[in-house]
């Protein structure tokens, strides 16, 4: 069985409606996704949501070619994103920006049918991370060093907004894929960049345990980490999956 706890919050001082990360999950179906919409682009929250909801609602077969899987996700998510925005009623300055499209990171995890150990595939574009805890071991993907999260991440582009729209095909960017196996007692964590960086930076003290211990007052726990400067003030999203 996969037991799931999900945590998310907007940047400190921001409203829930300004949260630009996104997540979607189907614990029974073994499908999970997180995305981090780029603040610099317009409607990146809608784009991030389109990516995660498309992936969880319609995941590619596990044996489908990785790049083709992402291409299918991109095509479907672009249609969803484009349909959700009322392009022609935007004010002039918003139109100027919206035509440039939206950007987001993406990390999707699919866990195979319940046999022990279970197979999984994780596809990622950008700097959201997957952590695999197994006994005393912790593996992280795609980064193992927190300093690797200091750079501008690779992003999924929605393609142009109105008036160019969906007329031009968009190729997926470079992606990274990990195949693995999980057994009973393991934990998987999907996390966007700020909390990933904090966990990698403090991995010697097993910070994921502190997060779970503070699950009931998660918002103030993370808020304190941010105000003390230990964690970057960013949208925070994490999905903890326990295997039993």
């Amino acid at each position: 069985m996969l037991s799931v706890r999900e945590f998310h919050r907007p940047k400190s001082g921001y409203r829930e409606s300004e949260y630009e990360d996104a997540f979607s999950l189907d614990a029974e179906g073994g499908k999970f996704a997180v995305a981090d919409g780029a603040t610099e682009s317009s409607f990146s929250n809608i784009w991030a949501r389109a990516l995660v909801s498309t992936f969880v609602a319609n995941p590619p077969p596990l044996d489908m070619n990785d790049r083709q899987s992402v291409k299918n996700l991109l095509d479907e998510a672009r249609r969803k994103w484009y349909a959700e925005i009322e392009w022609t009623s935007l004010p002039w300055f918003q139109k100027n920006k919206a035509v440039l499209g939206s950007y987001s990171t993406f990390l999707g995890l699919q866990v195979d049918s319940p046999v022990n150990p279970r197979r999984y595939r994780c596809i990622t574009i950008g700097d959201s991370c997957l952590f695999h805890l197994s006994g005393p071991k912790m593996e992280s993907f795609p980064f193992s060093d927190y300093r690797d999260l200091n750079y501008t991440p690779r992003l999924m582009w929605s393609g142009h907004g109105y008036p160019i729209g969906l007329s031009k095909d968009v190729e997926p960017p470079g992606l990274e894929v990990k195949y693995g196996k999980i057994k009973d007692g393991d934990t998987l964590i999907l996390a966007t960049d700020a909390i990933s960086k904090w966990m990698l930076q403090n991995k010697a003290t097993k910070p994921w345990q502190q997060v779970l211990e503070n699950a009931e007052n998660w918002d103030s726990y993370i808020g304190n980490l941010i105000s003390s400067g230990a964690m970057k003030n960013d949208d925070i999203t994490a999905i903890f999956i326990s295997v039993s």
């Binding site: 002039w92 300055f93 139109k95 035509v99 440039l100 142009h160 008036p163 031009k168």
Partner: peptide, 17 residues
């Protein structure tokens, strides 16, 4: 001019304030 995503540019109208 905006990037076409594959190394080229597309010209598009915009409102200059």
């Amino acid at each position: 001019k905006v990037s076409d995503g594959s190394g080229g540019d597309i010209e598009v109208d915009y409102d200059f304030g």
